[in-house]
Design a protein around this nucleic acid. Sequence first.
DNA 1: CGGTAAGTTGAAAAATCTCAATCACGGTGG
DNA 2: CCACCGTGATTGAGATTTTTCAACTTACCG
Lengths: 253, 253
Amino acid sequence: MLTTTQPNARHARAGEPTAPLKVDCAHCSLRDLCLPSGVSKAEFDRLDGLVSTRLAVPRGQALFRNGDPFKAVYAVRTGFFKTRVSTEDGRDQVTGFQMAGELLGLDGISTDHHNCDAVALEDSQVCVIPYASLESLSREVEVLQHQFHKILSREIVRDHGVMLLLGTMRAEERLAAFLLNLTQRLHQRGFSSAALVLRMTREEIGSFLGLKLETVSRTFSKLQDDGLLEVRHREIRVLDPEALHARVNPAGA
Amino acid sequence: MLTTTQPNARHARAGEPTAPLKVDCAHCSLRDLCLPSGVSKAEFDRLDGLVSTRLAVPRGQALFRNGDPFKAVYAVRTGFFKTRVSTEDGRDQVTGFQMAGELLGLDGISTDHHNCDAVALEDSQVCVIPYASLESLSREVEVLQHQFHKILSREIVRDHGVMLLLGTMRAEERLAAFLLNLTQRLHQRGFSSAALVLRMTREEIGSFLGLKLETVSRTFSKLQDDGLLEVRHREIRVLDPEALHARVNPAGA
DNA sequence: CGGTAAGTTGAAAAATCTCAATCACGGTGG
DNA sequence: CCACCGTGATTGAGATTTTTCAACTTACCG
């Protein structure tokens, strides 16, 4: 399912839009998952010009990097991203994985510069939402303003959930929680919540979960041995979602 | 320095404002650290009515709890808070400590209900900022809108920093980073960055840093033995800030 | 002045990491 | 078409870090 890398673009930065076609939230299938969620039919024409262009980001390439000037936020249209932050001495932490309908770049508002790297894990497309337009439009369209605030707040709540995971859970619980989160988000998007293809390596999963890649691998094997999963490299089948859920909170509740 | 607990209010919820006096950002000394930062003199009168009241929160008491309906965000005027989230099986994670000028309750926008508990660690006062007023006023006052977005974004960036800490650092690095963060914020507020009095227990520090309280205690002792700190219970003196900084990133950079 | 909550310290147990070997697969080139 | 190469994944064994359990100390509050 992964499209092949475009070797000549692999090490370049995100460039010009491949398809500068007029883009239109009103006809986008991700409408209800994305920024315009809650905007009524009648109001959709007011969102005209919110999304200026689309941008293709080949696998392995950064949409933006730590330190880049912040000008826009991005909505994932197709594909899959990771965001990561790093220490001065080179250790890094994946802060999230983003799929269709999710927003990237919100961190940049705080300092006018991006504070993390966003890297495509497969060939992807994003909608470019110039931040100035978003601010001015959300002064006029109340539901847009509210929805944008909700998205920012939701990101904070999500982050708190990740802190809880990193601060209190052991390896098996972390991986179980991670898989359930992925399947739940895939399900929202109309995919099976039993079968999934991971878009990231064991190392990237480990970086997100605060574990080494070997620990991730061992934990996959354990969950497989226990009959909760079927693991074949990146293809995962969830055999027993109930039991998987129970692993997140072993004490039960 | 800690004010004593008011025993009879200890187990009650945050109640009515003790001092329903007209509150005014324009004359508040926290102006530049807080929500109105960046609002010009001329515009200050437009912020009239943004802060409806003040609220006293005695030590140990919750300003809000997970599940409470979300109606307002709160700016800490005096005192000190922690926020925490918890799992169904009762483990919890402190997600942050908030001091004067910092905002509480932003998590509530996402679902119209608070998603964490905010508990005063000493007798505190907050300014109540009804969320509806904030949204409508920020549609009119551009700099307020922008500042509010910056605060939301800054919280996201802060959370990513905590994830990095929880995901990649060992105990000593975590504690060093924590202390430097505290001293830096105290310094911003005009306090010494060498001497500080912790407002929280070892257990709360541990919960924030993803460590057990014994590990926190041992790590304090280690840093003291190494001559970087002087630790007497909650009174901490930073003897060698440089060296402390070096402990955060032992590989150097 | 006693009781309780908070903090410190030790020793053993447990979880995770590190280092190393091996395996599997996809892509490449002969 | 097949052998080979490189990346990613798995597994094992030993080292390290942190946790757990327990004893004890200290400070503070009533």
